[in-house]
Amino acid sequence: MDPQSRWEQERQEGKNKRMKIIVEAAEQVFSIQGFEKTKMQDIADELNLGIATLFRYFPKKDKLIVAVAVNVLERYYRFFTDVAAKDVTCYEKMEMLFNHFIADLEPENLACTKLLEAFESYASTSLDELGDYQQYILIRKKVADILTEIIEEGILDGSIRTDISAKDVLLSIINAFGLFSRKLSLFERIPFFEDELDPNVQMIIIKGIFMEYIKAK
């Protein structure tokens, strides 16, 4: 590699590293203050960074919002990829995915779960302003592709019922379970009535129903 190419590569790597630091800091601020209330100055202050420097990397707050959402979803993609690579049956992999969504309701994971749900709500009313939203769509497709890969293995390994449309049913179940998990995360600070079920208990019960339904007879 010639000196000019090496310099350009190092420059790009430095830029990517700085952008990653900004995105991670923004995620923390958005988690606490929300998308609407957060100002770019708040994120610059969190990083002890000049506002002009921040705008050089992210000219609009909406671009940073999308980058944060993509960063969160990439963590799901890495987990799904790890599950897909395990040498176990599709049925066991589905249980791992269910358990992952249940774990999203643990205190240490709530901020991330709530942020993803908040982004979907924000995007539904601000889609025209989210110029980089396609990046989020692409990472969601990658997650769906990995899930499809897991399901197709289940059709072959005999661990999933063969009298149902496995792909349609399992995709619907995982989507519903994940959405329910994220919805429950929004009620974390709302007091429940004495006779209401704890969110984790609700998730475990629904997981059991789904697992029994898809299991090969």
Score class of each variant (00 low, 15 high):
residue 123 A to Y: 04
residue 154 G to M: 02
residue 14 G to A: 11
residue 105 L to E: 08
residue 17 K to T: 14
residue 27 E to D: 10
residue 70 V to W: 06
residue 105 L to Y: 05
residue 195 D to M: 05
residue 5 S to A: 10
residue 124 S to V: 07
residue 113 T to K: 06
residue 12 Q to T: 06
residue 132 D to S: 09
residue 10 E to T: 06
residue 162 T to V: 07
residue 41 Q to W: 04
residue 183 K to L: 14
residue 90 C to Y: 00
residue 27 E to T: 14
residue 192 F to D: 10
residue 178 G to C: 11
residue 91 Y to F: 10
residue 190 I to L: 10
residue 48 N to L: 09
residue 19 M to V: 01
residue 31 S to N: 08
residue 200 N to H: 12
residue 37 K to A: 11
residue 216 A to L: 09
residue 35 F to C: 14
residue 135 Q to A: 14
residue 111 A to Q: 12
residue 2 D to E: 10
residue 71 N to K: 11
residue 103 A to C: 03
residue 118 A to T: 09
residue 21 I to W: 02
residue 24 E to D: 14
residue 100 H to P: 03
residue 62 D to S: 11
residue 95 E to A: 03
residue 182 R to I: 04
residue 68 V to M: 07
residue 37 K to R: 05
residue 45 D to Y: 01
residue 150 I to F: 09
residue 210 F to S: 13
residue 29 V to E: 02
residue 46 E to P: 02
residue 114 K to V: 07
residue 103 A to S: 11
residue 195 D to A: 12
residue 98 F to I: 02
residue 79 F to P: 01
residue 94 M to Y: 12
residue 167 K to Y: 08
residue 65 I to G: 04
residue 13 E to W: 11
residue 52 A to Q: 10
residue 165 S to N: 12
residue 194 E to D: 15
residue 197 L to R: 11
residue 65 I to A: 03
residue 31 S to M: 00
residue 42 D to C: 01
residue 199 P to Q: 08
residue 51 I to S: 12
residue 176 A to I: 05
